[in-house]
Simulated assay, not measured.
Amino acid sequence: GRCYLPDDWLALLDIGPGEHLRPHNRKKLALMARWLADEAGQYEASARVGASRLPFRARWAVLAAAGIYGDIARKVRAGGEHAWDARVFTSRGEKLRWVKSAFMDARRNQPVPVNREGLWTRPRA
């Protein structure tokens, strides 16, 4: 009975409480998944910049995770309504490629600056 989708997005798409998994809402969920994937892409890019301040091993881990989970979001976005037909995942080979790529990026440590406007930021203490 849990739903981890933003209430304001559900309301915007006229999806009532507990109705998000009903078949007639599938197109609306595909649209919402695209919005979430787009937002995740912005956070992925931001994480690559933030990772530059971490020690090498942590930077490598963050960059690998950003790529792996970013791939899942991109696949869900590309799948549209069919993203719910089967579990979306990254293969072992895709993960290995991300780990290798992240290693090189972590060693190089030259992230491309991104605009963080509109992204969540921790409140200052």
Rank of each mutant, 00 (worst) to 15 (best):
Arg22Tyr: 10
Asp105Asn: 12
Trp98Asp: 08
Gln110Phe: 05
Ala125Lys: 13
Ser101Lys: 15
Ser52Met: 05
Asp14Leu: 12
Gly80Val: 10
Asp8His: 14
Arg92Cys: 14
Ser91Asn: 06
Gly79Pro: 00
Arg77Ala: 11
Val62Ala: 13
Pro123Val: 09
Leu96Asp: 11
Asn25Ile: 00
Ile72Gly: 02
Asp8Arg: 15
Ala30Phe: 00
Arg2Gly: 03
Val88Tyr: 01
His20Leu: 05
Gln110Asn: 14
Ala64Lys: 10
His82Cys: 10
Arg92Asp: 09
Arg22Trp: 11
Leu5Phe: 03
Val99Pro: 13
His20Ala: 14
Arg77Cys: 04
Trp98Asn: 03
Ala30Gly: 01
Ser101Asn: 11
Gln110Cys: 09
Tyr69Thr: 15
Leu12Ile: 10
Leu29Met: 14
Asp14Ser: 11
Gly79Ile: 00
Asn25Lys: 03
Ala83Gly: 03
Asp7Glu: 07
Met104Glu: 08
Leu21Trp: 07
Arg22Ser: 10
Ala106Leu: 13
Arg2Thr: 09
Leu21Cys: 12
Arg108Thr: 14
Arg59Thr: 07
Gly80Leu: 04
Ala47His: 11
Tyr43Trp: 05
Gly16Ala: 09
Glu39Ile: 05
Lys95Pro: 00
Trp98Tyr: 06
Ala65Trp: 11
Ile68Leu: 01
Ala47Lys: 11
Tyr43Met: 04
Asp8Asn: 13
Arg48Trp: 04
Tyr4Pro: 01
Val62His: 03
Val88Gly: 08
Ala40Leu: 01
Thr90Val: 15
Met104Ser: 07
Ala47Asp: 14
Pro6Glu: 07
Lys95Phe: 07
Asp38Lys: 12
Lys95Tyr: 02
Leu31Asp: 01
Ala106Val: 01
Ala73Trp: 03
Arg116Glu: 15
Arg108Ser: 09
Gln42Gly: 13
Arg87His: 07
Ala61Val: 13
Arg2Glu: 03
Asp38Trp: 03
Trp35Phe: 02
Val49Gly: 02
Gly79Tyr: 00
Asp71Trp: 03
Gln110Arg: 15
Asp71Cys: 14
His20Trp: 10
Gln42Ala: 14
Ala125Arg: 15
Gly1Trp: 05
Ala125Pro: 15
Leu5Gln: 11
Ile68Asn: 01
Ala83His: 07
Gly93Trp: 04
Asp105Cys: 12
Arg34Glu: 13
Ala33Tyr: 07
Ala106Ile: 02
Ala30His: 07
Val49Pro: 00
Leu54Cys: 10
Arg97Ala: 12
Tyr43Pro: 00
Ile72Ala: 04
Ala61Cys: 08
Asp7His: 09
Leu96Trp: 09
Tyr69Ile: 15
Val76Asn: 10
Pro111Lys: 12
Cys3Gln: 06
Arg48Pro: 07
Thr90Tyr: 03
Trp84Glu: 10
Ser91Met: 05
Tyr69Asn: 12
Gly67Trp: 03
Arg59Asp: 07
His24Ser: 10
Ala102Gln: 01
Trp120Asp: 11
